[in-house]
Computed example of a mutant assay.
Amino acid sequence: MPIKPKNILAVDDEPKILEVVTSYMESRGFTVFSAPNGKTALEIFDCENIALVLLDLMLPDISGEEVCAKIRKQSRVPVIMLTAKIEEESLLKGLGLGADDYIRKPFSLKELGARVDVTLRRASDDLVPLVTKNSFRSGDLVVDFEKNIIKKRGLEVLLTPSELKIFSALIKYPQKVFTRAELIKIALGDEFEGYDRAIDNHVKNLRQKIEDDSKNPDYVLTVHGLGYKFEGG
């Protein structure tokens, strides 16, 4: 099963920059959603399955720093800042809020493409969850990746390595829909030559361990025709 092109959210109040960036990234196989301000950017982010955000810091309504902070509260989706600011303090503030990289304006499209590729590759290899410890549904499910402990209603749950990798990826990107092909790459590696439906068995076993009713799951949900996502609630 081929992996679908990744969705990019480009945010900038300069129409020409949005037009050029959109055209270039689409020519490289990406689907691009564009936003001229922070409010629209957050609305798109909430509705679409975004894989990376190109974010201008100087927006007319909500600052880029604030947009980045709001995104970081719910997702580890990579954020690359586009900035005309040259002050070190401004750049450090953006990185401190969770941005993954920055590009100073004016920039070349070749540099932009290279930064996007590197950032996406680094993100796909990094299975660090959004937070190292979290509790869902008033303590029904407790996840501590730092200690590698998962508890369901106070009892420790033992996951296989593949199940843990799948679970880590799903929690890392809450609400992100992973295709079976993406989860196979994460859990089983590029060398896996079996059927993509093999991932369904891992998800089935995972659900039996963390769900009250594995046939009506609350956490690991099926998105019909696409794949799976994590719903913390």
Results as ranks from 00 to 15, higher is better:
residue 5 P to G: 02
residue 7 N to P: 00
residue 10 A to V: 08
residue 14 E to C: 05
residue 15 P to Q: 01
residue 15 P to K: 05
residue 17 I to W: 06
residue 25 M to C: 11
residue 30 F to A: 05
residue 38 G to L: 05
residue 39 K to E: 15
residue 40 T to V: 15
residue 50 I to G: 05
residue 59 L to S: 02
residue 59 L to E: 03
residue 64 G to H: 07
residue 68 C to Y: 10
residue 68 C to N: 10
residue 70 K to M: 14
residue 76 R to K: 13
residue 90 S to K: 01
residue 95 L to I: 13
residue 98 G to D: 10
residue 100 D to M: 09
residue 104 R to H: 14
residue 113 G to S: 07
residue 116 V to G: 04
residue 118 V to W: 03
residue 121 R to C: 06
residue 122 R to C: 11
residue 125 D to G: 09
residue 128 V to S: 12
residue 128 V to D: 13
residue 130 L to S: 02
residue 131 V to L: 12
residue 133 K to C: 09
residue 142 V to T: 15
residue 144 D to Y: 02
residue 144 D to K: 09
residue 145 F to S: 02
residue 147 K to S: 13
residue 148 N to D: 14
residue 149 I to G: 03
residue 151 K to Q: 13
residue 151 K to A: 11
residue 155 L to E: 15
residue 155 L to I: 15
residue 159 L to R: 06
residue 160 T to R: 00
residue 162 S to K: 14
residue 164 L to T: 03
residue 164 L to G: 00
residue 165 K to W: 07
residue 173 Y to T: 07
residue 173 Y to P: 06
residue 178 F to W: 14
residue 181 A to C: 02
residue 188 L to F: 09
residue 189 G to M: 09
residue 193 E to G: 00
residue 199 I to K: 06
residue 199 I to A: 04
residue 201 N to P: 00
residue 207 R to T: 01
residue 210 I to D: 06
residue 215 K to N: 11
residue 215 K to Q: 10
residue 219 Y to D: 01
residue 220 V to G: 02
residue 221 L to P: 06
residue 224 H to E: 11
residue 233 G to E: 12
